[in-house]
Design a protein around this nucleic acid. Sequence first.
DNA 1: GGTATTTTGTGAAAGCTTTCACAAGATCCG
DNA 2: CGGATCTTGTGAAAGCTTTCACAAAATACC
Lengths: 209, 209
Amino acid sequence: MLRPKSIPESTVRRMSLYLRSLQEAQDAGMASISSDELAERGGTTSAQVRKDLSFFGSFGKRGFGYPVRELIGAIRDILGLDHTWRVALVGAGRIGSALFGYEDFQRRGFHIRAVFDSDPAKVGQAWGGLTVRSDAEMETALREGEIEIVIIAVPAEAAQRVVDRVVRAGVRAVLNFAPARLRAPESVALRTVDMSTEMESLAFALNNS
Amino acid sequence: MLRPKSIPESTVRRMSLYLRSLQEAQDAGMASISSDELAERGGTTSAQVRKDLSFFGSFGKRGFGYPVRELIGAIRDILGLDHTWRVALVGAGRIGSALFGYEDFQRRGFHIRAVFDSDPAKVGQAWGGLTVRSDAEMETALREGEIEIVIIAVPAEAAQRVVDRVVRAGVRAVLNFAPARLRAPESVALRTVDMSTEMESLAFALNNS
DNA sequence: GGTATTTTGTGAAAGCTTTCACAAGATCCG
DNA sequence: CGGATCTTGTGAAAGCTTTCACAAAATACC
């Protein structure tokens, strides 16, 4: 099957979950896995698993299932995880610090190569093997470090300005933790993790049950 | 219009964003706002705004727009934000610490009343006005503190066990930060913030453009 | 080798969500 | 007061995503 221009975002997210389940299956010594079992582990249905995978190709054998090792390789390839990604963190506050130490990023190939902050009291601090740099150097450093992904962990009021600057510096992927809706050109991938909205959605659920 | 049994989750999330935009509009001294302007600020379309609001009632005046103050009150009521929510945090690591200090939660009425950890080295530490408690006390403390929402910030391997325990202790809303798909009964609202999946979705976007 | 069983890949159907488009209600202004 | 303008609320259409269901391909076993 030919890969269509646009893969649903929900499919991409599930691919990431399938990958996790497959790695667990591999650790458990399984050589093959059925769409049914993958669905069970990933919290979805077998038809969904097959449909998702079929966007990218035909990886299974009828009557048998999917070869675990090969499928892991295929999904890693699809998601672009063979490559190591060069990441910068903007904002050296509490959230920035938690993300800097988040081992899952490292383990999955997202390597934080630079940390920026606007607070002179933080600039110069040693973080792991890095030194917190002034945000004035940001554009230059992003280009020199060939940074591909920027994580934003600054207050909401400052977030849009940071996006504008990193986009001008050539970055084409941004993960935002500030509780603000940000604007970026079409060509830039922007995701926002909005923890307050998540909490409000829980409040709504409690309020309506 | 009668409120249907089920409101789309996407509508609920947008309500949270509209509320933010409305508060900004109010701070800017606006008394009324049109669906068009609300859409602009919230990153959606005017038809979407009107449709979303119409799930809950009829708040606007034709030819005029929505009264800012009243609509803020209505959305706060819908989302259940007039009430203060009693929250507990499980996991006193880096992420837990960042969430504990996250002022937006406090500001929006989500008050963290207890912190638990299984590490004896952390139990007894003072966090803000609280003391980190042993996870052995968790069930009792959740019930005694009448905790309504639990935030999980423990390693992936430990997360499912925590969910099972807090659900048994009567908690009906959980926000999970562990990179794991968790299971909970239908009657429990469970949201997962999966930062690694977000990064992988960015990697995919970069890989396919 | 042949028959029963398993499980994929995929069109078609069903179900959801968003967008369209316009009648109806409200304001504005001369 | 009356015509022009604005903007909501909402059915209907369009667009997406998920689920269904089954032919086709592969295995398992006697």
